[in-house]
Amino acid sequence: MDQNRQGARASYVALSVFVALWILAPSAVRRFNREAFVEFQAPALHLLGKSRDLATFWEKKSRSVEEMAAAGRDLARVNAALEIQINKYEDIRRENVRLREITHYNVPAEYMSVVARVATRDSSSWWQRIVIRKGRKDGIRPGAPVVFGNTVVGRVTAVHLTTSEVDLVTSPGFRCTAYLEGDEQNNIVLVNGVASNSLGTAKARVSVIPRDYSLLAGGQPTRVFTTGMGGVFPSRLILGYIDGGTYATQVGNFKESLLVPSRDLYNLQEVSVLVPLHQNPGEALIQGEDFQ
Protein backbone atom coordinates (compact mmCIF):
# COMPACT_ATOMS: atom_id res chain seq x y z
CA MET A 1 0.00 0.00 0.00
CA ASP A 2 2.70 2.43 1.06
CA GLN A 3 4.74 1.62 -1.96
CA ASN A 4 1.75 2.21 -4.11
CA ARG A 5 1.18 5.61 -2.48
CA GLN A 6 4.75 6.59 -3.03
CA GLY A 7 4.51 5.50 -6.64
CA ALA A 8 1.43 7.61 -6.98
CA ARG A 9 3.24 10.65 -5.63
CA ALA A 10 6.08 10.06 -8.07
CA SER A 11 3.56 9.75 -10.88
CA TYR A 12 1.97 13.06 -9.98
CA VAL A 13 5.35 14.71 -9.92
CA ALA A 14 6.17 13.18 -13.28
CA LEU A 15 2.85 14.40 -14.62
CA SER A 16 3.47 17.95 -13.45
CA VAL A 17 6.90 17.90 -15.04
CA PHE A 18 5.36 16.63 -18.22
CA VAL A 19 2.67 19.31 -18.15
CA ALA A 20 5.35 21.96 -17.74
CA LEU A 21 7.30 20.52 -20.65
CA TRP A 22 4.12 20.32 -22.68
CA ILE A 23 3.38 24.00 -22.13
CA LEU A 24 6.93 25.01 -22.96
CA ALA A 25 7.19 22.72 -25.96
CA PRO A 26 7.11 24.44 -29.34
CA SER A 27 3.67 24.38 -30.84
CA ALA A 28 5.03 22.22 -33.64
CA VAL A 29 5.33 19.34 -31.19
CA ARG A 30 1.73 19.71 -30.15
CA ARG A 31 0.60 20.10 -33.72
CA PHE A 32 2.50 16.97 -34.67
CA ASN A 33 0.90 15.11 -31.81
CA ARG A 34 -2.53 16.23 -32.91
CA GLU A 35 -1.83 15.38 -36.55
CA ALA A 36 -0.65 11.93 -35.52
CA PHE A 37 -3.86 11.16 -33.68
CA VAL A 38 -5.93 12.53 -36.55
CA GLU A 39 -4.17 10.22 -38.96
CA PHE A 40 -4.60 7.36 -36.50
CA GLN A 41 -8.33 7.84 -36.67
CA ALA A 42 -8.54 8.52 -40.39
CA PRO A 43 -8.87 4.85 -41.47
CA ALA A 44 -11.73 4.38 -39.04
CA LEU A 45 -13.51 7.41 -40.47
CA HIS A 46 -12.95 6.17 -43.99
CA LEU A 47 -14.21 2.76 -43.01
CA LEU A 48 -17.24 4.32 -41.46
CA GLY A 49 -18.05 6.30 -44.58
CA LYS A 50 -17.49 3.27 -46.77
CA SER A 51 -19.71 1.11 -44.64
CA ARG A 52 -22.41 3.70 -44.94
CA ASP A 53 -22.02 3.59 -48.70
CA LEU A 54 -22.19 -0.19 -48.52
CA ALA A 55 -25.39 0.00 -46.53
CA THR A 56 -26.88 2.27 -49.15
CA PHE A 57 -25.68 -0.11 -51.84
CA TRP A 58 -27.41 -3.08 -50.24
CA GLU A 59 -30.49 -1.04 -49.64
CA LYS A 60 -30.58 -0.23 -53.37
CA LYS A 61 -29.83 -3.82 -54.20
CA SER A 62 -32.86 -5.00 -52.35
CA ARG A 63 -35.20 -2.97 -54.58
CA SER A 64 -37.30 -4.86 -57.08
CA VAL A 65 -36.47 -4.87 -60.76
CA GLU A 66 -39.73 -3.09 -61.58
CA GLU A 67 -38.86 -0.29 -59.24
CA MET A 68 -35.44 0.07 -60.80
CA ALA A 69 -36.87 0.07 -64.28
CA ALA A 70 -39.28 2.83 -63.32
CA ALA A 71 -36.48 4.84 -61.76
CA GLY A 72 -34.35 4.29 -64.87
CA ARG A 73 -37.16 5.55 -67.07
CA ASP A 74 -37.55 8.68 -64.95
CA LEU A 75 -33.86 9.29 -65.04
CA ALA A 76 -33.77 8.97 -68.80
CA ARG A 77 -36.39 11.70 -69.03
CA VAL A 78 -34.48 13.98 -66.71
CA ASN A 79 -31.33 13.23 -68.68
CA ALA A 80 -32.94 14.24 -71.93
CA ALA A 81 -34.10 17.52 -70.45
CA LEU A 82 -30.67 18.19 -69.01
CA GLU A 83 -29.03 17.36 -72.32
CA ILE A 84 -30.94 20.16 -73.98
CA GLN A 85 -29.97 22.55 -71.22
CA ILE A 86 -26.32 21.63 -71.50
CA ASN A 87 -26.37 22.49 -75.18
CA LYS A 88 -27.98 25.80 -74.39
CA TYR A 89 -25.40 26.54 -71.73
CA GLU A 90 -22.60 25.64 -74.07
CA ASP A 91 -23.79 28.35 -76.48
CA ILE A 92 -24.03 30.83 -73.63
CA ARG A 93 -20.58 29.87 -72.41
CA ARG A 94 -19.07 30.48 -75.81
CA GLU A 95 -20.81 33.81 -76.06
CA ASN A 96 -19.54 34.66 -72.60
CA VAL A 97 -15.95 33.79 -73.50
CA ARG A 98 -16.24 35.88 -76.67
CA LEU A 99 -17.58 38.88 -74.75
CA ARG A 100 -14.87 38.57 -72.13
CA GLU A 101 -12.27 38.58 -74.84
CA ILE A 102 -13.76 41.68 -76.44
CA THR A 103 -13.97 43.61 -73.19
CA HIS A 104 -10.68 42.28 -71.80
CA TYR A 105 -12.58 41.31 -68.69
CA ASN A 106 -10.56 39.60 -65.99
CA VAL A 107 -11.11 35.91 -65.87
CA PRO A 108 -12.54 35.03 -62.46
CA ALA A 109 -10.67 32.67 -60.21
CA GLU A 110 -10.53 29.19 -61.65
CA TYR A 111 -11.24 26.15 -59.59
CA MET A 112 -10.48 22.50 -59.64
CA SER A 113 -13.48 20.63 -58.36
CA VAL A 114 -12.86 17.68 -56.04
CA VAL A 115 -15.85 15.56 -55.11
CA ALA A 116 -15.70 14.16 -51.60
CA ARG A 117 -17.92 12.01 -49.39
CA VAL A 118 -18.75 13.20 -45.93
CA ALA A 119 -17.11 10.99 -43.29
CA THR A 120 -18.52 12.39 -40.06
CA ARG A 121 -19.50 15.64 -38.61
CA ASP A 122 -18.14 17.02 -35.40
CA SER A 123 -20.40 15.71 -32.75
CA SER A 124 -20.50 19.05 -31.02
CA SER A 125 -22.69 21.57 -32.66
CA TRP A 126 -20.66 24.36 -31.11
CA TRP A 127 -18.32 24.16 -34.04
CA GLN A 128 -20.33 23.44 -37.10
CA ARG A 129 -17.80 21.20 -38.73
CA ILE A 130 -17.76 18.13 -40.93
CA VAL A 131 -14.98 15.78 -41.94
CA ILE A 132 -14.70 14.79 -45.58
CA ARG A 133 -12.90 11.82 -47.04
CA LYS A 134 -10.44 13.73 -49.21
CA GLY A 135 -7.25 15.29 -48.01
CA ARG A 136 -3.85 16.64 -48.88
CA LYS A 137 -3.07 13.82 -51.23
CA ASP A 138 -6.15 14.68 -53.26
CA GLY A 139 -4.91 18.25 -53.66
CA ILE A 140 -7.22 19.88 -51.15
CA ARG A 141 -5.89 23.07 -49.61
CA PRO A 142 -7.10 25.05 -46.62
CA GLY A 143 -9.41 27.95 -47.36
CA ALA A 144 -11.05 26.28 -50.34
CA PRO A 145 -14.83 26.69 -50.59
CA VAL A 146 -17.02 23.61 -50.26
CA VAL A 147 -20.30 23.48 -52.14
CA PHE A 148 -23.13 21.13 -52.87
CA GLY A 149 -24.79 21.85 -56.18
CA ASN A 150 -25.27 25.59 -56.20
CA THR A 151 -25.35 25.98 -52.45
CA VAL A 152 -22.45 26.75 -50.18
CA VAL A 153 -21.63 24.19 -47.50
CA GLY A 154 -18.62 25.88 -45.95
CA ARG A 155 -14.88 26.21 -46.17
CA VAL A 156 -11.96 23.86 -45.62
CA THR A 157 -10.16 24.79 -42.42
CA ALA A 158 -7.70 21.97 -41.85
CA VAL A 159 -6.30 19.44 -44.25
CA HIS A 160 -4.88 16.09 -43.23
CA LEU A 161 -3.39 13.43 -45.42
CA THR A 162 -6.63 11.73 -46.38
CA THR A 163 -9.28 13.74 -44.57
CA SER A 164 -10.15 17.41 -44.30
CA GLU A 165 -12.17 19.43 -41.86
CA VAL A 166 -14.81 21.76 -43.22
CA ASP A 167 -16.29 24.67 -41.29
CA LEU A 168 -19.96 24.89 -42.17
CA VAL A 169 -21.68 28.15 -43.04
CA THR A 170 -23.07 28.12 -39.52
CA SER A 171 -19.65 27.84 -37.90
CA PRO A 172 -18.30 30.85 -35.99
CA GLY A 173 -15.12 30.63 -38.03
CA PHE A 174 -17.00 31.19 -41.26
CA ARG A 175 -17.20 34.67 -42.77
CA CYS A 176 -18.09 35.85 -46.24
CA THR A 177 -19.81 38.60 -48.17
CA ALA A 178 -23.21 38.27 -49.77
CA TYR A 179 -25.91 39.97 -51.79
CA LEU A 180 -29.53 39.84 -50.75
CA GLU A 181 -32.16 38.86 -53.25
CA GLY A 182 -34.19 41.85 -54.35
CA ASP A 183 -31.61 44.43 -53.38
CA GLU A 184 -31.20 46.42 -56.55
CA GLN A 185 -28.31 48.46 -55.26
CA ASN A 186 -26.29 45.30 -54.60
CA ASN A 187 -25.15 46.35 -51.16
CA ILE A 188 -22.81 43.80 -49.75
CA VAL A 189 -23.77 42.26 -46.46
CA LEU A 190 -21.73 40.18 -44.07
CA VAL A 191 -22.53 36.54 -43.31
CA ASN A 192 -20.90 34.74 -40.44
CA GLY A 193 -21.76 31.74 -38.36
CA VAL A 194 -22.85 32.01 -34.76
CA ALA A 195 -22.16 29.55 -32.02
CA SER A 196 -25.42 27.83 -31.31
CA ASN A 197 -25.93 27.99 -27.61
CA SER A 198 -29.45 26.89 -27.18
CA LEU A 199 -30.28 23.36 -28.15
CA GLY A 200 -31.59 24.26 -31.56
CA THR A 201 -30.42 24.19 -35.13
CA ALA A 202 -27.42 26.31 -35.83
CA LYS A 203 -27.85 29.44 -37.87
CA ALA A 204 -25.64 32.12 -39.29
CA ARG A 205 -25.93 35.83 -38.93
CA VAL A 206 -26.47 38.26 -41.78
CA SER A 207 -25.35 41.70 -40.72
CA VAL A 208 -24.73 45.15 -42.17
CA ILE A 209 -28.04 45.05 -44.00
CA PRO A 210 -28.92 48.57 -45.14
CA ARG A 211 -31.66 50.00 -42.98
CA ASP A 212 -34.06 50.61 -45.80
CA TYR A 213 -33.80 47.18 -47.37
CA SER A 214 -37.06 45.30 -47.19
CA LEU A 215 -37.79 41.65 -47.70
CA LEU A 216 -39.36 40.23 -50.82
CA ALA A 217 -43.07 40.76 -50.96
CA GLY A 218 -45.46 37.88 -50.45
CA GLY A 219 -43.48 36.29 -47.65
CA GLN A 220 -41.39 34.12 -49.94
CA PRO A 221 -37.97 33.32 -48.49
CA THR A 222 -35.27 35.81 -49.43
CA ARG A 223 -32.22 34.12 -50.82
CA VAL A 224 -28.72 35.16 -49.86
CA PHE A 225 -26.09 34.86 -52.58
CA THR A 226 -22.32 34.93 -52.61
CA THR A 227 -20.83 37.98 -54.28
CA GLY A 228 -17.87 36.35 -55.97
CA MET A 229 -15.93 39.51 -55.11
CA GLY A 230 -13.70 38.18 -52.37
CA GLY A 231 -11.72 35.79 -54.51
CA VAL A 232 -12.82 32.76 -52.52
CA PHE A 233 -16.37 31.85 -53.46
CA PRO A 234 -17.67 31.89 -57.01
CA SER A 235 -20.54 34.33 -57.46
CA ARG A 236 -24.26 33.62 -57.21
CA LEU A 237 -24.05 30.54 -55.01
CA ILE A 238 -26.83 30.27 -52.47
CA LEU A 239 -25.74 30.65 -48.86
CA GLY A 240 -29.19 30.26 -47.43
CA TYR A 241 -32.36 32.13 -46.70
CA ILE A 242 -33.19 35.05 -44.47
CA ASP A 243 -35.11 33.89 -41.47
CA GLY A 244 -38.31 35.88 -41.78
CA GLY A 245 -39.24 35.58 -38.15
CA THR A 246 -36.23 37.38 -36.78
CA TYR A 247 -35.80 39.86 -39.55
CA ALA A 248 -34.83 43.48 -39.02
CA THR A 249 -33.21 43.79 -35.65
CA GLN A 250 -31.41 47.06 -35.59
CA VAL A 251 -27.78 46.76 -34.66
CA GLY A 252 -25.87 50.00 -34.70
CA ASN A 253 -26.78 51.80 -37.83
CA PHE A 254 -27.62 48.66 -39.73
CA LYS A 255 -30.01 45.78 -39.58
CA GLU A 256 -29.25 42.20 -38.79
CA SER A 257 -30.96 38.93 -39.40
CA LEU A 258 -30.48 35.19 -39.15
CA LEU A 259 -29.60 32.98 -42.04
CA VAL A 260 -31.07 29.52 -42.38
CA PRO A 261 -28.75 27.30 -44.42
CA SER A 262 -30.46 26.25 -47.60
CA ARG A 263 -29.62 22.56 -47.45
CA ASP A 264 -30.07 20.64 -44.34
CA LEU A 265 -26.41 20.54 -43.45
CA TYR A 266 -26.98 17.56 -41.18
CA ASN A 267 -27.94 15.25 -44.00
CA LEU A 268 -25.09 15.89 -46.38
CA GLN A 269 -23.67 12.82 -48.09
CA GLU A 270 -21.42 14.29 -50.72
CA VAL A 271 -19.86 17.69 -51.35
CA SER A 272 -17.55 19.31 -53.88
CA VAL A 273 -14.45 21.15 -52.84
CA LEU A 274 -13.53 23.98 -55.21
CA VAL A 275 -9.77 24.18 -54.97
CA PRO A 276 -8.52 27.38 -56.59
CA LEU A 277 -5.90 26.78 -59.25
CA HIS A 278 -3.87 29.71 -57.98
CA GLN A 279 -3.18 30.25 -54.35
CA ASN A 280 -4.80 33.44 -53.09
CA PRO A 281 -3.22 35.73 -50.48
CA GLY A 282 -5.61 34.59 -47.76
CA GLU A 283 -4.44 31.02 -48.17
CA ALA A 284 -0.85 32.13 -47.90
CA LEU A 285 -1.74 33.87 -44.63
CA ILE A 286 -3.37 30.74 -43.25
CA GLN A 287 -0.28 28.75 -44.04
CA GLY A 288 1.85 31.46 -42.47
CA GLU A 289 4.10 31.92 -45.46
CA ASP A 290 6.68 34.60 -45.17
CA PHE A 291 6.32 37.83 -47.01
CA GLN A 292 7.99 41.16 -46.81
Binding site: L15, F18, V19, W22, R30, R31, N33, R34, F37, V38, F40, Q41, D122, S124, W127, V131
Partner: peptide, 19 residues
Protein backbone atom coordinates in the same frame (compact mmCIF):
# COMPACT_ATOMS: atom_id res chain seq x y z
CA UNK B 1 -4.07 8.25 -25.89
CA UNK B 2 -7.78 8.28 -25.16
CA UNK B 3 -7.61 11.99 -24.47
CA UNK B 4 -5.53 12.81 -27.53
CA UNK B 5 -7.83 10.77 -29.75
CA UNK B 6 -10.73 12.80 -28.48
CA UNK B 7 -8.89 16.08 -28.90
CA UNK B 8 -7.80 15.30 -32.43
CA UNK B 9 -11.30 15.94 -33.64
CA UNK B 10 -12.27 18.88 -31.48
CA UNK B 11 -10.86 22.38 -31.35
CA UNK B 12 -9.73 22.65 -27.76
CA UNK B 13 -6.31 23.65 -26.44
CA UNK B 14 -3.98 20.74 -27.11
CA UNK B 15 -3.45 18.39 -24.24
CA UNK B 16 -5.95 19.78 -21.77
CA UNK B 17 -8.31 16.85 -21.68
CA UNK B 18 -5.58 14.25 -22.22
CA UNK B 19 -3.46 15.48 -19.31
Amino acid sequence: CLGFLFEARRPIPDGTLAL
